[in-house]
């Protein structure tokens, strides 16, 4: 049996969303450390094979955090490397932000490894009773995404052949990329909308069912509840 059949995509979505919110909400470094300690190993176990390339941008972002912390963070100087004074705030700031980013990475690894956008969408509509209009928009967006990615690539090639900047820097560059994209996109959208209407979208009744969590779903929810509660208590001590 596939993993995706065991865990409900809606439950995984709620789990990963809650983890991301916790990265913003908890102020105590011990709370953040607890959540990261629980979730990063899970994320790496389930997602390393498929998403090991995520580690490269993550490590680059950590280097960015470190540089920013060394430059901007305050506190008392605790060491010096040449001209650069390392302040206590830099160590704390680096640890604090790295833990937050690590929790977000864990949320991504857990979610992206165990489900995919299409399964999530189906699950959100049937189990969490997402309105059919919303699921139509998201499903259509996902379908169109790769088309627009190709369009962006083609526009970049054309810009390069005309001797323009391939990577947009100024708002005017962005305007010259977005105008043709939307010119094509709105036409597509109009005809897709008309076609959907002609095929009776308005009268389509979405399938609904009461969510029946599997035992794994329940374990995941309990794990979420436990760690959030423990992190909250740690933050209060």
């Amino acid at each position: 049996m596939q993993r995706t059949e065991i865990l409900s995509p809606s439950i995984l979505f709620l789990y990963s969303l809650s983890l991301t919110i916790s990265a913003f909400v908890f102020r105590d470094i011990r709370s953040l450390l607890l959540i990261l300690t629980v979730n990063l190993p899970i994320g790496i176990i389930v997602g390393y094979e498929k998403f090991k390339l995520f580690l490269i941008p993550f490590l680059i972002s950590l280097i960015g955090v470190l540089i920013n912390a060394l430059i901007f963070a305050g506190g008392t100087p605790i060491a010096a490397v040449g001209q650069l004074k390392i302040r206590s705030g830099a160590i704390y700031g680096f640890a604090d932000v790295s833990l937050r980013l690590g929790i977000m990475l864990s949320a991504s690894l857990v979610f992206s490894s165990l489900t995919n956008p299409r399964l999530l969408l189906k699950s959100l509509e049937t189990e969490l009773w997402l309105p059919k209009e919303a699921s139509f928009m998201v499903a259509l967006s996902l379908r169109l995404l790769s088309i627009f990615e190709k369009d962006i690539h083609e526009i970049r090639l054309i810009r390069r052949s005309r001797g323009l900047r391939e990577t947009p820097v100024t708002p005017v560059d962005w305007k010259s990329i977005l105008t043709p994209l939307f010119s094509l996109g709105v036409q597509r959208g109009r005809w897709i909308g008309i076609a959907a209407e002609l095929r009776g979208f308005r009268y389509r009744k979405p399938k609904r069912k009461i969510i029946r969590p599997s035992s794994l779903d329940l374990y995941l929810l309990m794990l979420l509840l436990f760690q959030l509660l423990a992190a909250y208590i740690l933050g209060r001590i």
Binding site: S141, L144, L145, L178, G189, R190, G193, A196, E197
Partner: peptide, 14 residues
Amino acid sequence: TTVDLAILAVIAAI
């Protein structure tokens, strides 16, 4: 309308 929804989807995709 369904066309509005489709245009919103286009905006989201772009």
